[in-house]
Design a protein around this nucleic acid. Structure first.
Lengths: 167, 167
DNA sequence: TAATATCCGTTTGGTAGCAAACGAAATCGG
DNA sequence: CCGATTTCGTTTGCTACCAAACGGATATTA
């Protein structure tokens, strides 16, 4: 357990240790998990207020556009999977992106239950223009970290994703 | 830039490098940021499906209960701040918690614009019982990491929070 | 002290997100 | 074949979340 006066803690973290220090708790895990969540919120909010709002995109909309850019046209279920969204949510996101003219939905002739989603010309143009700027933002947001620290962070998180994701 | 065959990458990450490797992008930052978000989603979903659903709590509801437990009764604005929610969102969360009988709202006599939120007896009992179990979940979710890795992860994230949070 | 400005929590209007129910389409078993 | 089951994407009903508008209460200032 860390010392209460440890200068490397956020104010809130210090208070928590004061209040809960007497209990048998796993502080290391607690601080790791809560900071994952706080960091994600901070990162998402900053990106949405910064670059994404200029293009009228939410985080989910951006992710979807980006996945389609990298992977090419995809069937709806795979797209949901890759964007880490439920299929119901994806329907909504795609509907919004369609309204904005960024993606189109194409019925699959061989199996009429299925739908293929792909970028439109405007969608492609948008993501090509947007992503480099988004990437600059990403760089700023982790700008406090050295290159090797960024890789270390990504690697540690990767292991959390694997463990927590296999529910 | 990392080698394409690097075994320490998720499948999706490998594809991204194949597709975008030619561009001048900051991959280290990109992978760090996107893994922060993916990890947060995984962690939240697992906690909500696991412990929290048993108590009828969302992540936000749990956070609010927990903050009130650690900090004691708080004025609404401070509570929103500490929970990292907008004041409008907090109104809704508190309303739900009130309906569940976990918290109560008390008008402040000296300034009738203000409201104090505090745990009820049932709320206190709930969080006292819930948190140790939640903490076990946290331990599982980062169970792939050694104690010092957890601290390293928390520290790296802390620095991201400071940078990205100061928009 | 009266008019104005500021502050606080709530409400509003919107998107995002999930689980579960749904309906159409394909597949499987007999 | 044909009925039952499974597999798709969508819809439904709900909570969460934000920004901005709102309205009552307090502060400020003239």
């Amino acid at each position: 357990m860390q010392n209460r006066a440890d200068p490397r803690l956020l104010d809130a973290e210090r208070l928590i240790q004061e209040r809960l220090g007497g209990r048998r708790l796993d502080f290391d895990s607690m601080l790791a998990v809560s900071n994952i969540y706080r960091a994600a919120t901070a990162v998402r909010r900053r990106a949405e207020k910064g670059v994404l709002s200029e293009f009228g995109l939410s985080w989910g909309g951006f992710t979807t556009l980006w996945v389609l850019w990298v992977w090419g046209e995809m069937q709806s279920a795979d797209l949901a999977d890759e964007c880490d969204l439920s299929k119901g949510t994806l329907t909504g996101v795609v509907k919004t992106l369609e309204k904005q003219g960024f993606v189109k939905r194409t019925p699959v002739a061989a199996d009429r239950r299925k739908v293929t989603v792909s970028l439109t010309g405007a969608g492609l143009e948008t993501i090509e223009q947007l992503f480099p700027r988004f990437n600059l933002y990403e760089g700023e947001m982790v700008g406090n970290l050295s290159a090797s620290e960024k890789r270390e962070l990504a690697e540690l998180l990767r292991r959390v994703i694997v463990t927590a994701g296999s529910s």
